[in-house]
């Protein structure tokens, strides 16, 4: 039997480091270095994306704000960028955006919460394993398909119940969007609930609580910041969602919160303008970026609140 030799061989001139030669080790050290720099650059590049977004939004909306005062932008209730005497009250678009997002949340909060409680507290693991993929499939449906569904299926369906509903309206896209963000809100809140330590639940059961009472009095309060984060992030998605409203909500910039009428949201406005041929230096072109900036600020604040709520929640458990 051949025996392993080390020290003895070393004395007879066996190379150090188990046979790695110096040139190889130098090359290895160099690659190690280069790799760590390259990986860092890749991670840093993700910051450049944000920087790029902020830069472009500000740069291209500055000419807009040179002509339209911030006060007018935020308080006017007319949005008529291509009219002779154009008016730029972004609240017109914001009102429609919030209406749609509100309807979406009215669907997604109760349904998402109910589903999350069911999955985290009631469902057997096998059920949960089967349901999560279904939710992921729902999340994977292209938004343009949801838009088609809202315009050509949900709206006609609703019109049979609500005679006054116009062909373009905020209700149908809002409902569809609620279904769209449901998988996300449900799975994020379920993660939060499942992260609540079993010990807390056991304490509840030890007091004689029923399963529902444990869910309502122990799990939900303990997971509240995580659940809140889920809905804030869901809200952010609804606000930023584009294709469903671009297809089904219409393109009239109407100030108001009537879900039965069509109205242009921020995102729908951007799409509408982008589809036409925009002269590069027109105020209409810059108004697109001003609307984009408003959208970015709104979603960014939601996202940051959601991020820190989730992070605080993770730190607690």
């Amino acid at each position: 039997m051949t025996s392993i030799t080390t020290s003895a061989d070393r004395d007879s001139g066996m190379p150090l480091y188990g046979g790695a030669d110096a040139r190889f080790l130098r090359r290895r050290a160099l690659w190690n270095r280069v790799a760590s720099y390259l990986l860092f650059l890749a991670a840093a590049a993700s910051v450049l994306v944000t920087v790029g977004i902020v830069y472009v939004l500000i740069r291209d909306s500055l000419p807009f704000f040179a002509k339209v005062s911030l006060l007018e932008f935020l308080t006017d209730t007319q949005w008529t960028p291509v009219f002779e005497n154009a008016r730029f009250g972004v609240m017109t678009l914001v009102s429609a955006t919030l209406t749609v997002a509100g309807i979406a949340l009215a669907v997604a909060i109760p349904a998402g919460l109910g589903l999350a409680i069911y999955l985290s507290e009631y469902a057997r693991p096998t059920v949960r394993e089967a349901v999560k993929p279904l939710l992921e499939l729902l999340e994977g449906v292209p938004t343009v398909v949801y838009g088609f569904f809202a315009l050509l299926f949900v709206t006609p369906l609703l019109q049979t119940f609500i005679p006054g509903l116009s062909g373009f309206n905020l209700l149908a896209p809002g409902l569809v969007m609620g279904i769209m963000i449901l998988p996300y809100t449900a799975s994020v809140s379920e993660d939060a609930m499942r992260a609540v330590p079993m010990g807390l639940r056991e304490a509840g059961y030890a007091l004689g609580y029923s399963r529902f009472r444990v869910a309502a009095k122990v799990v939900i309060p303990a997971a509240l910041s995580g659940i809140t984060a889920a809905f804030i992030l869901g809200m952010s998605r609804a606000v930023g969602e584009t294709m469903v409203v671009a297809i089904a909500a219409g393109q009239n910039p109407n100030f108001g919160f009537n879900p039965l009428e069509g109205a242009s949201t921020i995102t729908a406005y951007i799409v509408q303008m982008a589809m036409g041929d925009l002269p590069h230096d027109s105020i209409a072109y810059h108004s697109v970026f001003a609307a984009g900036l408003a959208l970015f600020v709104i979603t960014l604040s939601f996202n940051l609140v959601g991020f820190f709520l989730r992070r605080r929640f993770r730190e607690v458990y």
């Binding site: 046979g19 790695a20 190889f24 080790l25 090359r27 290895r28």
Partner: peptide, 13 residues
């Protein structure tokens, strides 16, 4: 594995 880590990749050794 330990040999590959040391740059030894030839089949015979």
């Amino acid at each position: 594995a330990g040999l590959r880590v040391r740059g030894i990749n030839a089949k015979k050794p």
